[in-house]
Design a binder for these strands. Sequence first.
DNA 1: GCTAGCCTACGAAAGTTTTCGTTGTGCTAC
DNA 2: GTAGCACAACGAAAACTTTCGTAGGCTAGC
Lengths: 123, 123
Amino acid sequence: MPTAAELDILAVLWRLGAATVREVHDELGKDNRYTTTLKTMQLMTEKGLLTRSERFGSHVYQASVPKEQTQRQIAGDLLKRAFGGSARSLLLGALAAQPASRKELDEIRVMLDSFDREKGKSS
Amino acid sequence: MPTAAELDILAVLWRLGAATVREVHDELGKDNRYTTTLKTMQLMTEKGLLTRSERFGSHVYQASVPKEQTQRQIAGDLLKRAFGGSARSLLLGALAAQPASRKELDEIRVMLDSFDREKGKSS
DNA sequence: GCTAGCCTACGAAAGTTTTCGTTGTGCTAC
DNA sequence: GTAGCACAACGAAAACTTTCGTAGGCTAGC
């Protein structure tokens, strides 16, 4: 399970696709040193969270696990830990923390419908 | 922000309402020592996450912050950190990790509707 | 060739979280 | 009273995360 600092780096890589340490570090905007970001990314590579390839003089990193899979893992863990398995409570917490536009709410409804259809197929 | 071990304890207290260390420890079912749970709960009390009151010979603890508020904080943090602020993605991750029954999906829809009504009022 | 600038590597320190052993206290039953 | 039991308190160690200083390598420009 990625830690907080690791998750921040993953989020950047999810946005950029693949990036150098410099790019990630600048994008993070934290006020810590470049070598801190580098070290964290090196550890993440050791753990298997990132993969690394050469490019000219420097290294290019990218997430080695699909975003969706990591997100599923994190959401599932939180769901179990803090929300008693209730997806409704989780969503309520999220929407209370950061209200969504009507458009977003509609998108959620569309997604729920597709889940329903899936259930229909199997039963 | 509560840590992992702290969150597990909070979850138990949310279920039990108020409980002694012994009750929490047994409920947790982890294979660590009683004193570990005690120490963690003492630290949580210092941090202000729990309040303590006397009962007979032992102490009774309970969460000092409403469950909903803590859940909102946690969900909001994760939403921002790992899901780019998209509540839809968060819910997708949760449902992918642990499929919900049709009844649960319907409950979510009801909740969405009430959010819509709230939006309607303000605009 | 030498210097400046950018990068990686490494190791250690600082900070947190989690764990547990030991000790002291009060209560109960014998 | 005293042995046994359950609990609280404390301190320290272990494990893990996060941070950074320093050193070494490569390239471009002078």
